[in-house]
Amino acid sequence: MTETERVPGEGDMWFFVVFESLVFTSYFCVYLYDRAQHEHAFLKAQSALNLPLGIVETILLLTSSWAIARCVQEVRAARYRSAQRFVLATVGLGVAFFGCKLAEWVRLIGDGHTFTSSEFMQHFFFLTGMHAIHLLIGFVVLGVIRYQLADPQHRSHQTIETCSTYWHTVDLFWVLIFALLYIVR
């Protein structure tokens, strides 16, 4: 199977993927370094997290990523109605993720684990909050895809691929954040 090599989406978007990954990596490094300084306190605060919920969130987001990748496949095959359904699925999964996230925050805050209660929680709310902001921007981006699909005149495969790249980036960051906040000991 030989295919021509092509950049997925707009080349310049990859600058964002790389640059924003590095910015997030710098936040992660600060967290890991801090964590090593106060290991015991971090472990204690970390035990308040609900791992199964985190795993459900991760699977929701991974599935949304799969759905938007399927959407792009359908767009390439010019099956726009089916592509629309995949975008809706992506939005639904993203909303479900955000709902879980909100429920998790509410539960933690209710239990007294707030932004200011411990250093671990400071990092937790900061990283998940920054991720949530990226996710919310992602909904705007999904809206752009939907708009593009609905209107044959303005339909640009490249724009759709660029937008899906953004959505995957939201997923990329979550995969790291999840491992670092929930699993790392």
């Binding site: 092509r6 991974l62 990523s65 899906s164 491992a179």
Partner: peptide, 19 residues
């Protein structure tokens, strides 16, 4: 996490077919 990161890049984001 980085294995997943790499799979998302390669498969979902289609870097596999990129230059």
């Amino acid at each position: 996490a980085l294995v997943k990161f790499r799979i998302i890049l390669g498969e979902f984001m289609d870097v596999r077919h990129a230059p």
